[in-house]
Design a protein around this nucleic acid. Structure first.
Lengths: 338, 338
DNA sequence: GCGTTTTACGTAAACGTTTACGTAAATCCC
DNA sequence: GGGATTTACGTAAACGTTTACGTAAAACGC
């Protein structure tokens, strides 16, 4: 089995306290003793036991990250950023796939509490009261990413969804489009659903364009299939539509697929703008113009924020709205001549 | 802070051994004592400390998973399967993003060794000697996924890449194509590079079609951009090419993008078949026909295999070749009339 | 040389849990 | 009723590490 600190101490003929001091770079030993101990460590192949250290220090150097869909394209980029920041800060990442289930989320939080993780990153979902209660019990820092909570004072890292939608819609308006539809999310989703629809509506109204219920179709999810099914519905409600804003890249690409099937040329007959700037945005045909959420940076920033809170480098984190841009590709046509 | 087992024992007026027995469902207490202890647990909000338990049991209920690219589309689906299996088996997953760097991989393995993880899943990369040395030191089970090792006897879960490529190429041949090219990976990649190229070559030769160096372009990576850059090169070498097999879905979609730009109609003028069946295969235009690696199932299977090894339910794991299928979509035309 | 300060150790206790083993009481069976 | 077995505890030690504190020796300064 693995040699312990006792084996090293015996081999080097010193006490375990001396070995510990040397291993951890604390003062209190001679150069001669240090060399002797290091030789013993190498000879025995000693690897310190982080479990024992965690028990004493009451810190495990581990954080938990909860995603509603760990293999989703959004999640995987955020995860990369989080993992980079955590690793650089000396922390390991336990990943939890909650599948948007409240029960499973509570189970994971309890598990993370038992494992005494030093902090939590909670991604892309609304914070329920019972989650917040567990956060409180755990007495560790929590950072939200790609989400926020109106009810609980938890630091977050996100993009301003209202502004992003507003500017995406204004972009279409500036390109000369006057009949613009939206493939939206859910009325009950306070994170990605409601603000993006509100931003869309506000942009229309601010530019003197009409907004009615016919301008939006709503969905429970944000997937390719949702977008594909929504386009025919939207066209029925808004037959003169020349452009649309989709509340996610996947839905935009789904709409694109449906347009191909309906023989509608994109962008010549229908312009489409998405939201996220996932990797696939450049891979579809035509390449998608979209609102760019800097997902990996958001993961990185939230990871750094959490590490900083754990280390006590700051007592309170300042929530961050990350900048977004409109990445122009080829899915939006210039309608100003028409 | 968190109440300990000592607090519960004091509150319930029993010993800590009794609390432990009750919490862990071991025999040796009366129903009356059990009720009393459970009330104390609830009143104090006791959560067992998994760190202390891990130190005693020499088992952390945690596994480490190493990916060369954690946000890659391949990785994220495998990760979901692994995480599901691990969670169901009572294990947490520490995710490590090695970025294909040998140095970083060693660093992660050492970290996982210190954290005393119960097992390792190693994905999508060749096993180097120094990794294998660390596996040996750690004395925990290791399972490979989406990779294998010719040099070390480690159980793996993968698809037979030779067969997959062979059948993809035969599929094109059965569709009447006679001049078939390949966008391949690297000669130095014994996992995804060489076998897929060999399968392609064998299929051509077995069907009496010519194979020369002009039939393959090679790449260092398997990304969209690699595919996009490869198509013009391949067309230069093989101007009469009517179909191509790409060694990954991303490269297939990259080739598709290049075809659109060159005004080549897919599949009418050029048929394309990919490899992986990533989510994006159905999202591109036209939807991609591809060899389907069951990525999530592979993750699930490798996770189950590792859990079983850790629990001692089996002493040796039997390596698994997972079945693949050809998922027909719309990127391959029937060339038998022409 | 002597008193003070610093250095280089080692000892003992702690962290929160699990469990082997001993003991007393209760139960069972002849 | 008595001996054997089972049940229901509690005690003590262990797991591998960190560190406060005490002590002896060395170094420093007058």
């Amino acid at each position: 089995m693995n040699p312990t600190i006792k084996d090293v101490a015996k081999h080097a003929n010193v006490s375990i306290a001396t070995v510990s001091r040397i291993v951890n770079g604390l003062p209190g030993y001679s150069e001669e003793t240090k060399k002797k101990v290091q030789q013993s460590i190498e000879a025995l192949g000693y690897q310190p036991n982080a479990i024992a250290r965690g028990l004493i220090n009451k810190r495990t150097q581990t954080i938990g990250v909860l995603f509603p869909d760990v293999s989703g394209m959004l999640s995987s980029e955020v995860l990369e950023g989080v993992e980079n920041a955590a690793h650089d800060g000396g922390f390991s990442v336990i990943v939890c796939n909650t599948t948007s289930s409240g029960k499973r989320t509570v189970k994971y939080l309890r598990l993370l509490q038992e494992k005494r993780v030093d902090g939590i990153i909670f991604a892309s979902e609304d914070v329920k009261e019972e989650y917040y209660k567990i956060f409180q019990e755990m007495k560790v820092p929590v950072v939200l990413v790609s989400t926020a909570s109106s009810k609980y004072d938890l630091p977050f890292v996100r993009v301003n969804d209202f502004d992003g939608a507003f500017q995406a819609t204004e972009y279409l308006i500036r390109k000369g489009h006057k009949v613009i539809g939206m493939i939206g999310g859910s009325d009950e989703d306070p994170i990605a659903g409601v603000p993006r629809m509100q931003g869309f509506q506000k942009a229309l109204e601010s530019n003197g364009l009409s907004f009615t219920n016919n301008h939006i179709t709503k969905n429970e999810g944000y997937r390719f299939q949702n977008g594909k099914e929504s386009l025919p519905l939207l066209l029925k409600k808004l037959p003169d539509m020349t452009a649309l804003f989709a509340a996610s890249d996947e839905m935009a690409i789904g709409a694109m697929s449906a347009a191909h099937q309906l023989g509608i040329r994109v962008p010549e007959e229908l312009s489409i703008i998405g939201y996220d700037n996932l990797k696939i945005a450049e891979m579809c045909y035509p390449p998608l113009t979209t609102v760019s959420q800097p997902l990996k940076d958001m993961g990185q920033t939230s990871g750094e924020m959490l590490v900083s809170l754990i280390k006590g480098e700051q007592q309170e984190a300042k929530s961050r709205y990350m900048p977004f841009t409109i990445v122009e590709r080829q899915s939006v046509s210039d309608f100003r001549d028409k």
